[in-house]
Simulated assay, not measured.
Amino acid sequence: MVTQTDKPGHGRTIAVFGASGHTGRFMVAQLLRRGFAPLAIGRDIAKMTESGFQDSNVPIRSASIDDPSSLDCSLAGAAAVINCAGPFLDTAGAVAAAALRARIHYLDVTAEQPSAQAIFDRFGDAATDTGIVFIPAMGFYGGFADLLATAAMGNWDSADEIRLGIALDSWRPTQGTRITGQRNTARRLVIEDGKLVPLEQPAPQTSWDFPEPFGRQDVSEVPFSEVPVIARHLRVARLRSYLNNTPLCDLRDSTTPPPIAADEKGRSAQTFLVDVVVRNGSKISRAIARGRDIYAFTAPLVVEAVERILDGRARGSGALAPGVAFDSTDFLRALTPEYLTFELRAD
């Protein structure tokens, strides 16, 4: 269903599935800011209409993952689709299959390990044969850590260990985050002896000395979709991912409210720091990034990827990790200083 006349995008028409969701609205706004022509796609046309897209002359289309023909119609005229509709265990396969039928690029923002792995396994060969790019987990949880780890490794062929620490000053989860958490019951994976293995239970607890402003934090081992993404291309014997306990307490409290806009861009006041430590023997390399609002930050992260794919700066085709598709250091620096501060250190 199309509720207003679609305008030609001249190769810069980008479909956003799940556009009326919290992250989806940031994605549409970022696409507009970067000169793209977004198509807002959702399952609930009433909710789509209430989201105000028509005020920005953004076409609205409805589609269901249970109706392949509706997905095919919704993607007509697009050069790529960004899937923002979780749980991705439910939506990613259907939307990615529609992208393959349409012969357009596919990106999503899943933090779910099984979803990211399924995109690689199911669509990799077909995307390569078709000459399109599929990038699962291009969001804050997943692709961001992969870019940082790849930048930190630099020209090293392998690493003995990668330790990833995420610090949030708070976490006001969206409804989508809560629903995804309930849906995603799969055993989380880490890398040990170069292989994907289940995380031991209960999740290990430790502490992490983050750079300022966070300092020393109690953390829990919480691997997200960065694990299967990093495992695709970095030779690392051991990978561990940690999140500080403060946001975990927020997430586990059912009374924690959703994000509240605190600036003119709709971003919340939440701040984040990601600290990636790569060790190879006695050598240590570190990538440190700071920013604001993990949901809002996902939009420029993904749209930068779309820009690079469409202008020919992606390296190859197929189902790719961000660190394979892009020059990771150049990519991250392109987001500074507006969305990110980023530094590399050799300790």
Results as ranks from 00 to 15, higher is better:
Val2Gln: 14
Thr3Asp: 02
Gln4Leu: 11
Thr5Tyr: 13
Asp6Arg: 06
Asp6Cys: 14
Gly9Gln: 13
Gly11Pro: 05
Ile14Asn: 13
Ala15Arg: 12
His22Ile: 03
Pro38Met: 01
Pro38Trp: 04
Ser56His: 05
Ser56Phe: 04
Arg61Tyr: 14
Ser62Gln: 10
Ser62Gly: 07
Asp66Ala: 11
Ser69Ala: 09
Ser69Gly: 13
Leu75Gly: 09
Ala76Glu: 11
Gly86Arg: 06
Pro87Phe: 03
Leu89Glu: 15
Gly93Met: 02
Ala94Asn: 04
Ala97Tyr: 11
Ala99Gln: 02
Arg101Met: 12
Arg103Pro: 13
Arg103Leu: 03
Ile104Thr: 03
His105Thr: 05
Val109Phe: 10
Val109Lys: 08
Thr110Ile: 13
Thr110Tyr: 03
Glu112Ile: 00
Glu112Phe: 01
Ala127Met: 14
Thr128Gln: 08
Ile132Gly: 02
Ile135Arg: 01
Pro136Val: 08
Met138Asn: 14
Phe144Ile: 09
Leu148Asp: 15
Ala151Tyr: 00
Ala152Lys: 02
Ala152His: 15
Ala152Val: 04
Ser158Leu: 12
Asp160Asn: 11
Gly165His: 02
Ile166Cys: 03
Ile166Met: 14
Ala167Asn: 14
Asp169Lys: 15
Asp169Gln: 08
Trp171Met: 00
Arg172Met: 15
Asn184Pro: 15
Arg187Lys: 09
Val190Ser: 04
Val190Asp: 02
Ile191Glu: 04
Glu192Met: 09
Val197Phe: 15
Pro198Tyr: 01
Ala203Ile: 06
Pro204Gly: 12
Ser207Ile: 12
Ser207Met: 07
Pro211Glu: 11
Pro211Asn: 09
Ser220Met: 08
Val222Gly: 11
Phe224Gln: 12
Ile230Arg: 09
Arg232Phe: 15
Leu234Met: 00
Arg235Phe: 09
Arg235His: 07
Val236Gly: 01
Arg238Gly: 00
Leu239Gln: 00
Leu239Asp: 01
Arg240Glu: 15
Ser241Cys: 15
Ser241Pro: 06
Thr246Lys: 08
Pro247Lys: 02
Leu251Asn: 05
Pro257Asp: 02
Lys265Ala: 07
Arg267Cys: 08
Arg267Ala: 11
Thr271Lys: 14
Leu273Asn: 06
Val274Glu: 03
Val274Phe: 07
Gly281Pro: 09
Gly281Ser: 09
Ile288Ser: 03
Arg290Trp: 08
Gly291Leu: 06
Phe297Val: 07
Phe297Lys: 04
Val303His: 11
Ala305Phe: 14
Val306Asp: 13
Ala314Ser: 05
Ser317Phe: 15
Gly318Leu: 01
Gly318Tyr: 00
Ala325Gln: 07
Asp330Ile: 05
Ala334Val: 13
Thr341Leu: 07
Glu343Arg: 10
Leu344Ala: 07
